[in-house]
Design a protein around this nucleic acid. Structure first.
Lengths: 340, 340
DNA sequence: CTGAAAGCGCTTACAG
DNA sequence: CTGAAAGCGCTTACAG
């Protein structure tokens, strides 16, 4: 193969026409004779020419690229969603730059600048610590939020699982399974989706006239994975072995749920007999651990699909789309950890 | 914030200097007085200017972007490696475009063209079906292969886990655990890493003077995940329940290993008593399933680190780096599936 | 149907 | 220390 990239100018010379004409046939826009079209296409083929999208981007002020910001790509729900988005967008001729922010505000800001300066045509923001607003951007570009509340609603779509309903299903499942002393276990650093799940949890307590206090809401301080495992183990040791003050846990996600199940095993706590557990997400480990972890399954495919649809629309006809909030249904999956 | 991007030209006008000077202070190259430097920097700050990297890329013929091709981002080893590479490269000021090829040659080709036309400064190719060569590219750009053999060795580094050694460790572990009728279970569509593992498997048979035939090598035809689960279940049914012709399996990866363990449970096969299993990768599920799946752990952090080091070197001084093949050590992890 | 020319936002030899 | 100008590879009104 030829080692240096050939430009439209050279194609023009080889074809005996102007660069304008070459550009027109490449983009199939404007008028030209069938004859020149064929000749040019042949030359392009022969020389293995492909258009320099950087130059095109600069000229057109669009890059056929979108950005995705995600807090942690190793998280099953996030990586599945991202993968699905990437797949769909590629089919539509877009490439996607995936930005793993590691929940770090500085990194997020740096990424945002980078994405902007790369003239991305759209941005999808998944989860994260605070509300996300396009004031963070100097230019107005189409923005879709997944699991992260947009600050303003102009030009911004918001898609998420029905966290409220999911949390209600989860909490109700614990009650139905016979748990009487129930807590929710979540992170101290919350996201909008976690808040929604907390609300669902609380509302079921109210509905059943069960008194609720801070003791029912356990927040894990920010720490690394290993420390978290120990923290949870200590918690279970105190509340399920020494004092038996808890017999049902709604884990805010399956990662915590699986950790609880593992620790319970180590501590000799009988699940589901003495402790019932339910999670959220339906990660692969949930179905593999024994007993299986009951959970609320999120439909990442649907979420990705909707996000891409709206984003593509917004890119094609900016501003015409009214801001939307879409809630994607979730499903209760019953497994051994709640007694099935 | 201002809604339209401000250019270097406007900064120049506001500062009362030429664009050349602005460019010089931004890039801190060339000479200029401290006074003008301060003034320009202030104006830049005030106007929230950031440089248009598309224009810069076009001019410089480099994009500060690298590409990664990966067959399946939902695979734990791949996604961990990719994530680590992205993290390191971002620290070095590079953004990375992740291309999920889904083991599809057409998609791979399309991605390659796209990456080239985006003027990527380097490319990392992870795994894949065939050998990978830079003849696939029209321009010569630094290339690193991970788990995929480069076709030529010019300017190409090759990094992989020590698959051969890993496979030897795995096979030996099965023998030590008392398995006497051992097979390797792999995919029909192989990659260079799978071939290496097969070689390791075979060499241990030879070393122990155990006769080996095609019956010891089971290749799963290309099919989707669900079909594969059924295929494996049928296989176990025939060979571990009906005929007991097999009591040890080296699964080419943990995904297959976990499937075997799940199916064994369903079929009532006693692991490790009647069947010993070992995998490769050390995915999270391996430590969660009961019994735990013994496996060979790959050091994805080290692999990512080496890949980035070499790539960065290659980008900075093209051609000066001699082609290298690096083999990263692996570790045997013993769990319940081989009797520990 | 086709071409000459301007311009997207940068960088950098060249000249002073 | 600084500026005018060319050029990276494209697209597109304008003119014919």
């Amino acid at each position: 193969m030829n080692k240096k990239n050939i430009s439209i100018k050279e194609i023009a010379k080889l074809s005996g026409v102007s660069v304008a004409t070459v550009s027109r046939v490449i983009n199939n826009n404007g008028r030209f004779s069938e004859e020149t079209r064929k000749r040019i296409l042949k030359i392009i083929e022969e020389n293995n020419y492909s258009t320099n999208v950087i130059a095109k981007s600069l000229r057109m002020k669009k890059s056929n690229t979108i950005g995705i910001m995600v807090p942690d790509i190793s998280n099953f729900f996030f990586s599945s969603t991202v993968q699905e988005i990437e797949r769909i967008m590629f089919e539509q001729g877009y490439s996607t730059i995936i930005c793993n922010t590691a929940r770090n505000i500085d990194k997020e800001t740096a990424y945002l600048r980078m994405l902007e300066s790369k003239m991305i045509d759209g941005l999808i923001v998944i989860s994260g610590l605070r509300e996300f607003g396009i004031e963070n951007m100097s230019k107005q570009i189409p923005l879709i939020c997944i699991d992260r509340k947009p600050k303003d609603n102009d030009n911004t779509a918001f898609i998420e699982s029905d966290h409220l309903e999911g949390a209600k299903l989860a909490t109700t499942e614990l009650i139905n399974a016979g748990a009487t002393k129930i807590i929710i276990m979540m992170h101290a650093l919350t996201s909008s989706s976690q808040e929604a799940r907390l609300n669902g949890f609380v509302s079921v307590f109210k509905q059943h006239h069960i008194p609720i206090s801070d003791h029912n809401i356990v927040k894990i301080p920010k720490m690394n994975k290993e420390e978290e495992v120990i923290y949870i183990k200590n918690f279970l040791q105190n509340n399920c072995v020494l004092s038996k003050s808890i017999n049902g846990i709604f884990a805010i996600n399956d990662s915590i749920g699986v950790t609880i199940l593992k620790d319970a095993k180590t501590l000799g706590i009988n699940v589901p007999h003495n402790l019932k557990v339910i999670g959220f997400d339906d990660i692969p480990e949930a179905s593999i651990i024994t007993p299986g972890l009951s959970t609320i399954k999120q439909d990442y495919r649907e979420i990705a699909k909707r996000a891409c649809e709206i984003l593509l629309n917004n890119i094609k006809s900016p501003g015409t789309i009214t801001p939307i909030k879409q809630e994607i249904p979730v499903t209760l999956i019953k497994r051994g950890s709640t007694g099935t």
